[in-house]
Amino acid sequence: MNPVNYLYLAALLFTIGASGVLIRRNAIVLFMCVELMLNASNLALVTFSRLHDNLDGQILAFFTMVVAAAEVVVGLAIIVSIFRTRHSASVDDSNLMKL
């Protein structure tokens, strides 16, 4: 099997994640979709690392995970505080940022 297949898988997952961001309205699910996109890119990075016999890709994936963890913490905190004030987790309900 050609290891490039991992890249196809990553592309597919990334696309699904991106579509999910556009389609889903629940902020939490939206977040999960973002995480899926990050994971897809991680997979691509790990595969690249393997293709080049080089650990830099894995390092980058590692940092991505750390940043994703930080991002999730803050993002979920934001969702919780929005839910507290607006009683809704739907991103469509937070549409005050318009002209």
Partner: peptide, 25 residues
């Protein structure tokens, strides 16, 4: 793919911590 450390971290951090945080929320 030989990324042993990342595989473990993926399970521990993502499925273990982040997804649980998601479920919590």
């Amino acid at each position: 793919q030989g990324a042993v450390f990342l595989g473990v971290v993926q399970i521990v951090v993502y499925t273990g911590a982040i997804m649980m945080l998601f479920l919590f929320v």
